[in-house]
Amino acid sequence: MTVADGEPAAAVPASNPQDNQTSDPKPSENPMDATESKPVAQPADSLDDLGLPNSAADGLVTKPFPKPLEGVQPEPPAQLTPEQNSKYEQVLKEVSSWTKVPVSLAKGAEERPLTDDDRMFLTRECLLRYLRATKWNVSDAVKRLRNTLAWRRDYIGDKLTPEYISIENETGKQVILGYDIHGRPCHYLIPSNQNTKTSPRQIEHLVFMLERVIDIMPPGQESLTLVIDFNQTKSGQNATISQAKQTLDFLQNHYPERLGRALVINIPWYINAFLKVIWPFIDPVTQKKLIFNDDLRKHVPPQQLMADVGGDVKFEYRHSDYWPALTKLAERRREAYRQRWIAGGKKIGESEFYLRGGEERATTETTAPTGEQQLEEKLEKLAVDNDKAAETTPTASAS
């Protein structure tokens, strides 16, 4: 979880498990052999070749789980009031009119045309998250959405690749594993596994993993559960005050409403002191989502919870197993998401429920009908009932 301010560190060759392969064998002299050796192409959403486990029942686990346990469902979304829906429509109209956005948050930054990635980011649920985070202030939500697009272009772009980030996770200091009782992906932060010195790449690592958590969210879910385990953490392994402030800044400004719950356990005294210092910088809504030293089995099904924190999953972090599996799982989910967005017409305001593979093409939040709409529905029903009655009433014979 540690992150830092300052200038980017000098480029360091990333340790990519996929690079640690033996040299390619000599090409076959028989063209037919070469053809037969080609791997069979997998559909964008197919995971059969990854050998992913589903629960503790699979024995020793070294790869991420691709889905929640059977029967685990996200909580139903809140119903929008007519006023809230009106504000959503205002935001949708405004962002749909954008043709250019800045390339960074720097003052006077150049503006460039909106890309497909920008448009795909602006889903119905995304606009609603920013509205909720700004207490339904339309102008504030629009401003923050525009700032986030600029930030994503500059900070994420094409830079945060699995190869570049790999070295940061070689010891498993961050792990995405399992889903909580509401289908939220669980993102573990384990400071005792810290393996690198303070650098900007540590914050980039956190952003990269947050993006992967979002990639693997099931239909109807838009938030995550953080599991922060300070067991065996030594002084100096946790984030500095500066790092914590920077992390809170981008989480609250660019990932609003993404935190569903934060489960914090095994807190040593110096972490308690640290939390007291940064507590005023944490949004009050976020503060309510933090739960300290609770029984994690109440929040995450034991069959998908690490044994180290009270669950039944015997998990061992093996970078050469975990990192390629997480990378491919996220890539395929992301590609399936994109293909659905394209098939749906590349719309701003598209439903994430649909994009994540939901069975119905529908938004995840509904609007409460207005009084006028309710009256219209009653009149329509009355007209239908009258028509049916007329059809069943016998007519008199002509004399």
Rank of each mutant, 00 (worst) to 15 (best):
F121K: 12
K314N: 13
F65T: 03
N266D: 08
D45S: 06
Q202V: 10
E350Q: 14
V138I: 02
A4D: 07
H182P: 11
Y188C: 00
L355K: 03
Q287K: 09
S55V: 08
V207C: 09
P280N: 14
L296I: 01
P76S: 10
L160S: 06
T2W: 03
D116F: 03
Q202I: 12
E376K: 09
G220D: 01
M217T: 04
Y155Q: 08
K276S: 12
Q79L: 11
P302G: 05
K314V: 08
W323F: 11
L50T: 01
Y322K: 11
S223K: 07
K234C: 07
T327F: 09
E352M: 02
M306H: 02
R356D: 06
Q194C: 13
L149Y: 00
G311R: 00
G157I: 06
E365G: 15
W279V: 06
D19G: 13
E376D: 13
D321Y: 04
T395K: 13
M120Y: 01
D116E: 09
K276I: 08
Y179S: 12
M217Q: 12
Q374M: 03
E75T: 10
S139L: 11
S320G: 14
I156D: 14
P39E: 04
N266T: 07
Y354M: 13
D321A: 11
S28E: 05
N54G: 14
W269V: 11
V40F: 11
R334N: 15
Q84V: 04
Q246G: 15
V300L: 05
I348L: 05
I278R: 06
A109V: 00
P31L: 03
V40A: 08
S15M: 12
F250Y: 14
S46V: 04
E350L: 07
D215N: 10
N231D: 14
F292R: 01
V213L: 15
V40T: 12
T367E: 13
G71P: 00
